[in-house]
């Protein structure tokens, strides 16, 4: 279990612009525990959801454990597919004076990961963002009783 760090910050964004406008999901955890979640789907005129709350220290520590265990900080997005018309994913992490701000396209499945120029690094990203989304969607669902997405 990594020790908790005071500057720990995470942001994830996934989105694209298409016939329903700019549709996206974004969340961030700030070092003071603030969790912000935004989800805009214009399909059938859905409205923008924007929620914020503060999570406890234990939640931040678990988030940090997940990020550290993934070893994402050792990766680099240099050889990942560029964001494109299909969409864009961004992952930003700051911890212990190091920061990453990765961007790539939407990854539909593992095959796309395996066929990329950096399958090992991209696989780490692919699973990490799913685990992070899973944590955030549960926190939002438990706290606000909405079913995000």
């Amino acid at each position: 279990m990594p020790g908790f760090t005071e500057d720990f910050y995470v942001r994830y964004y996934v989105g694209h612009t298409g016939k329903f406008g700019h549709e996206f999901l974004e969340f961030e955890f700030k070092p003071d525990g603030q969790l912000r979640y935004a989800n805009n789907s214009n399909y059938k005129h859905d409205v923008m959801i924007r929620k914020e709350t503060y999570v406890s220290q234990a939640v931040l520590e678990e988030l940090e454990r997940i990020v550290v265990d993934s070893e994402i900080m050792k990766e680099d997005d240099r050889n990942w597919p560029e964001p494109d018309k299909v969409g864009c994913q961004e992952l930003e992490v700051r911890r212990n004076g190091e920061e990453i701000s990765f961007a790539t396209t939407k990854l539909g499945n593992l095959l796309q990961v395996q066929q990329s120029k950096d399958p090992e690094g991209l696989r780490i990203f692919y699973y990490l963002v799913q685990d992070l989304k899973c944590l955030v969607l549960s926190l939002i669902a438990a706290h606000f009783k909405i079913q995000p997405i």
Binding site: D7, Y9, K30, D77, R94, N96, E99
Partner: peptide, 20 residues
């Protein structure tokens, strides 16, 4: 507009996000 909150100074930055 994003909060930039660092107790420790950033020593190392990596990724396209610093460019785009």
């Amino acid at each position: 507009q994003r909060v930039r909150s660092t107790v420790t100074a950033v020593r190392k930055s990596k990724g396209r996000g610093f460019r785009d």
